[in-house]
Design a protein around this nucleic acid. Sequence first.
DNA 1: GGCAAGTAGCTTACTCGTAAGCTACTTGCC
DNA 2: GGCAAGTAGCTTACGAGTAAGCTACTTGCC
Lengths: 178, 178
Amino acid sequence: MTTKATRTTDAAKPAGKDPVDAITAQWAEVRPDLDTAPMAVFGRVYRVARAMGDRIEKAYDRFGIARGEFDVLATLRRSGEPYTLSPRQLSATLMLTTGGMTGRLDKLERAGLLSRSPDPHDRRGLRVTLSERGLAIVDEAVVAGLEIQHEALEGLREDQVEQLQELLRLLLAGSTRD
Amino acid sequence: MTTKATRTTDAAKPAGKDPVDAITAQWAEVRPDLDTAPMAVFGRVYRVARAMGDRIEKAYDRFGIARGEFDVLATLRRSGEPYTLSPRQLSATLMLTTGGMTGRLDKLERAGLLSRSPDPHDRRGLRVTLSERGLAIVDEAVVAGLEIQHEALEGLREDQVEQLQELLRLLLAGSTRD
DNA sequence: GGCAAGTAGCTTACTCGTAAGCTACTTGCC
DNA sequence: GGCAAGTAGCTTACGAGTAAGCTACTTGCC
């Protein structure tokens, strides 16, 4: 299945030029000594992340939550019943400072999507629990988000998605090792 | 990386589990009705973007610039001599509001890496020009950044990088169309 | 030529994140 | 048991972005 576009810049593969091609071409012109291949890879990664982040943010709008707030609800949701975690677990999972988590929890608690209660076993700690409304909203929102993501993958065949998956796994490993 | 996580070519799902696998597995448990494949793709994209952003930010530290500031300098640099663009062109290219661009230019001008001068043909406008120091710094910083990115790609063979490139091109197209 | 509409860049108010420091509580060691 | 060190969550100060509104200038149309 490897119809790989080995030849660098011929009329090889389907995809046309995109903004990242324009940028790397400009670099090649002014700094021909640089190997711009990595730039093209990560440039596209950044743009996909940003574009999809914006789209999904917009999809969550109608549920009255921002993306970071969805992430909190989703982390609680996927932890399973009783949908309870500590602020510490949440901030660790979401790679957020504890101060940032305090803010998100404040907003979500005010909106009635979760509640904070004292941890019965550790008086320093709290237990954050999804409310019924929070559960309902996250269960709808996750579907809405997946739909957006699914659409973005429509241009890829099944086997290409799998291939991409494997390559991204390697890329993530390389990007986070040490 | 460690030993031989590079046996990607066979039926065997090669690379070991990563945090994204854990998340999708959790979702599969509590919501077996969902197709979590898109989540796995974009989850890795987000994580790569964030991890590499952090690394590169750190690499630019020694040049005294933040990543967003590098982007401004880089846009000027790759535009070629005389390294001059308008704030409007910069904010459009970098997908930044004009207010945000004002702030970045303020910082960079204060640091002596660029200068603002009136546009001789349009008295509303400005021309932003890279200073000699700005040029020197961006030329060093771009190499430092590429080095980080190159390292992150070490776990991939040449042909895998090309394949990834093509797939990301499709993904970006799907993520930004409409 | 004159005026409405558009554009360039800056300012202001606000949001959401971090870093660092605080208090309260728990843990480990003697 | 008692105390130093560690941990949980909140607060404060700050940074960097957006959205919206401002002034100054340009453009297009009559």
